[in-house]
Amino acid sequence: MIGAFGDVVFEVTDKKIQTFYDLKRAGEARWHDHDIIGGKPKSEFNGPGLDEITFVVLLKAEFGINPSKQLEKLRNMRDQGKAAPFILGGKPISKHYFSIQKMSEEYKIVDNRGNIIVAEVELELKEYVRSGVK
Rank of each mutant, 00 (worst) to 15 (best):
I2N: 03
G3D: 02
F5V: 02
G6M: 08
G6P: 08
D7A: 08
D7Y: 01
D14T: 14
D14R: 09
Q18D: 05
T19L: 15
D22A: 14
L23I: 13
R25K: 05
R30F: 00
H34L: 08
I36S: 01
I36W: 00
G38N: 07
G39P: 03
P41E: 00
K42R: 06
E44Y: 05
G47D: 06
G49F: 07
L50W: 00
D51S: 14
E52S: 15
T54F: 01
F55W: 01
V56F: 05
V56D: 06
V57T: 09
L58R: 02
L58H: 03
L59E: 07
K60V: 15
K60N: 12
E62F: 10
E62L: 09
E62A: 11
I65G: 02
P67E: 04
S68C: 02
L71H: 09
L71R: 13
M77A: 12
R78I: 11
R78M: 15
Q80Y: 00
Q80V: 04
G81V: 14
A83Q: 08
A84L: 02
L88Q: 12
G90E: 02
P92L: 07
P92E: 10
S94V: 13
I100D: 04
S104K: 14
S104R: 11
I117M: 11
A119R: 00
V121H: 08
E122L: 02
L125S: 12
E127V: 12
V129M: 13
V129F: 08
V129Y: 01
V129C: 03
R130A: 15
R130F: 12
S131K: 15
V133H: 05
K134D: 11
